[in-house]
Write a protein that binds this DNA or RNA. Structure first.
Lengths: 336, 336
DNA sequence: TTGTAGGCGTTATCAA
DNA sequence: TTGATAACGCCTACAA
C-alpha cells in the first residue's frame, strides 16, 4: 500500500545537509575529522531521510561484507533434530560474532544443489569468510575456497589434506579416559558403538577405543551408528546379539548412548550394574537420562568461538596456527 | 600458503577471450544472442581463470541479491531446542526457496543488538526480502521494512496493525475441534494450558478455548506456559492444585502437552482414563508419547512454503492477498 | 576540515 | 551480433 520505493542515497543526504558526499560518508562511518555542527546537520538529514547505506555499494569498494557464513552440510531436519552439537556450535559462533559486530549467515546444505549454491555465494564474496562444521567425507569446498583467498576454517579436522585451519578436540585422549575408567572398574567385555565412518569424529573415536584397548587383554567389540539416537538403539541390539555377556560399552555420542540405554532397559539389563555405559559430548540431556550418563565432555561452545577467532584473524591477514586442539574431560555420573 | 589473492574480473575474462566485457556478461548470464564459437571461447576463458561474478557489483546494478532472510526472534538455544516448529518452518522455506534458486539466510535475533544488526542488514538490501516467524509482542520491524519497500511477510498474524501479509492457521477453529472432542466424550472439567500471551498463537488459542467453552456450562480453568516442555509440566501442576478433579486439558502446544503428561504421570493420574489430554501442532514426537497424543495438526511445512510464495510474488511486484489462513484438523490418538 | 574525482565490477542502453 | 559507455552507490586518496 505504501510505497516510498526509492531509497535515499548518500548524494541526497549530502544535498539536504548542504555538504559533499564525502562528508556524509565520513559522518556515517564515524570519522572524527568532521566539525561538530556539520556532523549534527548530517545526522539530522540522515534521520529525516531514513538513510541507510547500500551494502552492495559499500562492499564493492571496501571488499568486505561484515558477514560470515556457517555452513552445515546437513538437511534442516537433521540440523534441528535433537543433536546438541548444532546449537552448541551456533551459540559459540553467535556470541563471538556478535562481539565482533559481524552478521552470521547460517547455511544448510543437505543437497548437492544447495551445496553448489553456497559455493557460488561464497566465491561470489557475499561473505568475508566461511566456517564449516559437521563435515562428511572429503568435501573439497573448504580447500577450494582457501585456494582462491576466501578465509575458511573447519570444526573438526577435515579428511584428506586439511588445506584450511581447523578447531578440533583431542578425540583419542578423550576416549582413552573413558575406556580407562571402564578398565579401572574391572569391566571385562568392553564394546563400543562408533560414529559414522565418513566423519572424522566417528573415525577418531573408534581408533581411540581400539588404541585404549590394545594395552589390555580385552578384545574389541564394535557396532557402528550414525550419531542418531535410533542408530544407537539399533547398534546396542546388535552388540547384545554379538556378545550377550558384554559388561560395558563406550558410545561415541550421547545421543546414541541414550538410544543404547533404552535398548538395554528393554533387554532387562541394569545400568551400570550389568552394563556400564559411557557417552561422548556431555549434552544437556545427559544429566537427565536414566541413569544419568557418564560422558566425555567436549567444549562445544568454545569450539564455535575459537572458529570465529581463527577466521577473523585469517580474514585480516594475521598469521594463524594450522589447528587448535581443545581438551576434553570425563564427567562421571551414574551410568559407569 | 597458497595465494592467488586477486580474483579475476569480467575485464580479464574479456581480454583473454578477445571480446568485450559486455559479451562476457551476456554469456555468463545465458543470453542466446551470442555466436556459438564466441560463447565457447568465453566459456573456456571463464573456466581457465576460475571466474565467478562479483555478487556485490551485480547487486549494485540489478538491485537484487537472490537471497532471502528468515528471521527468528529467538536465541540460538531456543531455535535449536526441541520445539518442532522451527525445523518445520525452515524445511518448508528451504524447499520452496531451493525450487526458486534463491539462497536462504537464516538469522536469529535473541538480543536487541542482533535485532538491530538484522535491521541494518535488511534495510541495507543485503537480501531481497524478509520472512518473520515466531514473533513476540509488537515488533515494528516487519512494518518498517514494508514501508520502505522491502518485501516482508510473517508467519502468524502480527500483533497490532498487520502492515505486512501473513500466513497463519485458523487457531480458533482448531481449538474448537479439540474442545468439542472433549465435550463429546462427556468431559466435565476442561482446563487449558495456554501459550505465552505475547504471541499471537498463545493469545488466539486461549481465546478459542474460551469461545468453545462458552456454549457449554463448563467454566474455564486456565494456566499459562511459554510453549516449552518445562512450562507445560509446571502449568499442569498448578492446574491440579487449582482443580484436583479436572478430567481434561487442552494444551496449546505438543511440547507443553508432553510436559503435562509427565506431571500427570507423576501425580498418579491415568491418561486418558482420569484426564484426557489434547495438544496442538502434531509434532513428530506426538506419536511416541505415552500415551500417544491426540492433537490439532497444523501444516507447518506448508506454512513455510506459502510464506516464500507470498514473498516472491511481493518481490516481483505482483498483487498479493493480505493473509492466507490454512486449515487445521484434529488427529485422534490415545490421550483423548 | 572539507570537497573533488576516480574507481570498485557489473549490467544495460545504445549505436554500430 | 557485438562493443562503447553510462550508470549503480559508496569510499578514499588527494587537493584545496
Amino acid at each position: 500500500m505504501t510505497s516510498a520505493r526509492e531509497r535515499p542515497t548518500l548524494e541526497e543526504v549530502a544535498r539536504r545537509a548542504g555538504v559533499s558526499r564525502a562528508t556524509v560518508s565520513r559522518v556515517v562511518n564515524g570519522s572524527t575529522t568532521v566539525a561538530p555542527p556539520i556532523q549534527e546537520a548530517v545526522r539530522r538529514a540522515v534521520r529525516e531521510l531514513g538513510y541507510v547505506p547500500n551494502l552492495a555499494a559499500r562492499t564493492l569498494v571496501t571488499q568486505r561484507t561484515d558477514s560470515i557464513a556457517l555452513v552445515l552440510p546437513e538437511t534442516a531436519t537433521r540440523v534441528f533434530s535433537d543433536d546438541p552439537l548444532f546449537p552448541g556450535i551456533v551459540r559459540g559462533v553467535s556470541q563471538e560474532l556478535e562481539a565482533a559486530d559481524r552478521q552470521l549467515v547460517l547455511m544448510m546444505a543437505g543437497s548437492t544443489a544447495s551445496h553448489d549454491r553456497i559455493e557460488r555465494y561464497a566465491i561470489g564474496r557475499h561473505v568475508d569468510g566461511v566456517m564449516f562444521a559437521s563435515m562428511h567425507g572429503m568435501d573439497p569446498l573448504p580447500g577450494a575456497l582457501a585456494r582462491i583467498g576466501m578465509p575458511a576454517v573447519c570444526s573438526g579436522r577435515p579428511l584428506g589434506r586439511p588445506g584450511v585451519p581447523y578447531v578440533d578436540i583431542d578425540h583419542v585422549s578423550g576416549v582413552a579416559s573413558a575406556v580407562r575408567h571402564l578398565l579401572d572398574a574391572g569391566r571385562q567385555r568392553i564394546a563400543t558403538i562408533a560414529g559414522p565412518q565418513d566423519m572424522v569424529a566417528g573415525i577418531e573415536r573408534l581408533a581411540g577405543y581400539r588404541d585404549a584397548l590394545r594395552g589390555s587383554d580385552r578384545r574389541s567389540i564394535v557396532a557402528v551408528g550414525d550419531f542418531t539416537r535410533e542408530s544407537g538403539a539399533l547398534a546396542m541390539r546388535h552388540l547384545l546379539q554379538d556378545d550377550p555377556k558384554l559388561d560395558a560399552v563406550f558410545v561415541a555420542s550421547d545421543l546414541m548412548a541414550d538410544g543404547a540405554l533404552r535398548t538395554l532397559r528393554e533387554a532387562g539389563r541394569r545400568v551400570p550394574d550389568d552394563v556400564a555405559v559411557i557417552g561422548f559430548d556431555d549434552a544437556e540431556f545427559a544429566r537427565y537420562t536414566d541413569p544419568p550418563l557418564t560422558t566425555v565432555r567436549q567444549p562445544i561452545i568454545q569450539i564455535g568461538r575459537e572458529m570465529v577467532r581463527l577466521l577473523l584473524r585469517l580474514a585480516e591477514g594475521a598469521p594463524v596456527e594450522d589447528s587448535l586442539i581443545l581438551p576434553t574431560h570425563l564427567v562421571v555420573r551414574e551410568s559407569a
